[in-house]
Write a protein that binds this DNA or RNA. Structure first.
Lengths: 154, 154
DNA sequence: CATGAAACTCGATGGCA
DNA sequence: TGCCATCGAGTTTCATG
């Protein structure tokens, strides 16, 4: 994974609709070398896939929520059960096991507050072993996540 | 924006490397109709772009942090200054203006704790008008954000 | 006027030097 | 590894309901 690979990853993360020729120019590589490296990065797993970035507002999603969750028990079984359950609900977009006071951080999107209320009752409230739940609403998105920084190890 | 458009958005968000023919089959549309609708959705802004999903571990990023920030003042000027500053730092991947106790939620990724410490000093500490900052570390990613749910309005 | 089919063109792919 | 030929897919056009 050299400098050219990192440049490729950065360019592809930013815009994967570029043609091989355009990419090749950006990273100062021959088109064929470019093509081979991309295939290698895909096989390697560095590139997990390709997707369209959708505008949530255009999907009618006006509410974005971060939910901090504390479990009643931090036993291995309780956490396993909780994590398996998280996978079952499509309304939970993202989930992290966290350090600090809360145990988990969830991310949820909804059409409006009514819809979020429904998700809260039908999905979040059904997660097993939850002792406390704190929802924080995003009032406005200042900066959108476009991907991860691609930096060279020092 | 009818049912077929939503199905298209969902499919493209999930995997934009599909061919038009494959997409057309998925959404039960003719390839040409499929092509036209995608172009329309791109122009419409529903599709903001296309990108590769990179695996942060493969980029050497082992640390992912959510940072809650409180400002000293909630005046329009203070918030504007803060938000403009957020845009200047590439290390800040995402930023939301939040309801509740904290004012802003930031998302940061780093190679390791040393690296995060450096980001903390050279980037986060330089944000203007910050009165309190609380970092929560993601110990493990349970569920990855693949995009937004595409649902039909009721 | 919107839709589907077919021709065309361009870029991705694989083999070769 | 770079170049070229091939093939397949995206794009445009035209004909049709």
């Amino acid at each position: 994974m050299d400098r050219a690979d990192l440049a490729l990853l950065l360019a592809l993360q930013d815009d994967s609709s570029l043609s091989i020729a355009e990419l090749a120019e950006k990273v100062a590589l021959s088109p064929s070398a470019c093509h081979r490296r991309i295939k290698a990065l895909e096989q390697d797993g560095a590139i997990a896939g390709y997707g369209a970035r959708l505008e949530p507002r255009r999907l009618g999603l006006t509410v974005e929520v971060f939910v901090e969750i504390t479990l009643t028990s931090q036993s291995r079984e309780a956490m396993d059960r909780f994590e398996r359950s998280v996978g079952d609900f499509d309304d939970i977009l993202e989930c992290h096991l966290m350090s600090g006071t809360a145990d988990y951080l969830l991310r949820v999107a909804a059409r409006d507050l009514d819809h979020y209320d429904r998700i809260h009752r039908e999905c979040l409230a059904r997660l097993p072993g939850v002792s406390a739940m704190r929802s924080s609403f995003s009032l406005r998105r200042i900066k959108r996540m476009q991907g991860y920084p691609v930096i060279q190890a020092p």
